[in-house]
Write a protein that binds this DNA or RNA. Structure first.
Lengths: 250, 250
DNA sequence: GAGTGGTCTAGACCACTGA
DNA sequence: CAGTGGTCTAGACCACTCG
């Protein structure tokens, strides 16, 4: 009965916001503040309804949207959980490279180097850093059945990833985003990719064991966390002789 | 041997289906049977609730899912409408090629040819046709500011597209899927794409005005209609010197 | 103002999980 | 069994569109 939250009346355009959107925003901030950590269960719908002084249906709609955005995962009979990158299910959303035949297989990782340096201008701009802010650059090769398939060139704001070293990377099992989330509290929410075809430069060709000039898929990924803050720029070169990048349009 | 009579074969569970899912299935069949045509308004929620003898909330949930799948479009105050490809909004979902700078621009179309022929085996298999079933093959070039960017090679089941000719294609304004929908009652629902990098063969290179061997993006798209029935196989070759294929991961 | 979709509530009941 | 999410209902009211 009591409409709990109101909007400032002075604005000419009050920008009506439904209650469930306000609840969603509150829950989002709980996620961002890590009040609920990755993999943990959040309070039950009834409990949240009581906390926010709204009906269960209203928090339900807020949770529905957060689940649709892959920030939460509902499990009937068990509860609602904060999504985590340390899960089989989640990795597939970001693993777009598929072998021509057969199931996607975990690829062997080979670290080339991991260095701290100053951000080149284009990198700095993409990551919303000041020019020459410190960044960590990671390069690696992914191989399938002994054949190199992917050459990754990864740029991370050093300030967010203090203490990231080659050892930490090499020692870690599981997806890289899982490491980011568990060790640095940086959770990747969504990403934008720009895909091009280009010819292999000599250095990349050698690392990928292809002829110089061979066609490669260039996948430039900008990963974003809460509030659309960029946290990673990754440029992958894929050989597409025996693999393809899959996409679904709907 | 005739199969055993009247015994449900080892179904593990009766597969509980919520009411709103059943309503959704009924509405889906209304869409498939074109009881409601593209662009038209469907009956109001209250009317549908009465027709199906359920509450408004239940049909609402069914509509919600159909809208989430882009089959319906809700417009507050006006009604709920059958999605159509003859809309600005919809085209952008399938237009993944973006210029490096500036907004996406409508590209000029140049038809190369449109021929009826027998389906090669790989095409037939992808389209779920019998080998050597008749297909219509369309080839065209898309240009931006006078520069060829895309070379499309499109295969359509002739049975579904009776009467499709070069003239019809050339005369048509707007998106090709709009033509399919309006003239042939074939509505594309979703599509799967396989993306690779390859070197331009001499013929394609000439049509795209690039050097033979230049790297090109190969985008193989299988378009599906209701019931995941394949209705189009399209192989596009994109030059990515001034454009890129954009993708969003979430 | 009438008609549409959108929000919110309160309550009942169902399906699933795990102790 | 208790506790969770999932479904369904009926009704009230709000926001938007258009004549």
């Amino acid at each position: 009965m009591p409409p709990p939250v109101s909007t400032p009346p002075a604005a000419p355009e009050p920008a009506f916001s439904p209650l469930y959107q306000q609840i969603k925003a509150l829950m989002l901030s709980s996620l961002q503040r890590a009040e609920w950590g990755p993999g943990e269960a959040i309070p039950s719908e009834i409990e949240l309804a009581a906390r926010f002084k709204v009906s269960q249906g209203t928090v339900r709609k807020a949770i529905d949207e957060l689940a649709a955005e892959n920030l939460l995962v509902r499990r009937q009979g068990k509860g609602t959980f904060v999504a985590t990158h340390a899960e089989e299910r989640v990795q597939f959303r970001f693993l777009r490279l598929m072998p021509d035949d057969g199931e996607p297989t975990n690829m062997a990782r080979h670290l080339i180097d991991c260095k701290r340096q100053r951000a080149p201008v284009e990198i700095a701009r993409a990551l919303h850093l000041r020019a020459s802010d410190p960044v960590i650059r990671v390069r690696r090769v992914l191989s399938s059945k002994g054949t190199p398939i992917v050459l990754d060139d990864i740029w991370l704001p050093a300030q967010l990833f203090k203490g990231l070293t080659a050892q930490r990377l090499a020692a870690h099992r599981g997806p890289m985003y899982g490491l980011f989330e568990a060790e640095f509290g940086v959770r990747m929410i969504r990403a934008e990719e720009k895909i091009r075809a280009l010819s292999a430069d000599p250095a990349s060709a050698e690392l990928l064991a292809v002829a110089p000039g061979a066609p490669l898929l260039s996948v430039e990924r900008l990963s974003l966390t809460y509030g659309d803050k960029p946290v990673e720029l990754r440029r992958g070169l894929y050989t597409t002789g025996s693999h393809y990048y899959r996409n679904e349009l709907s």
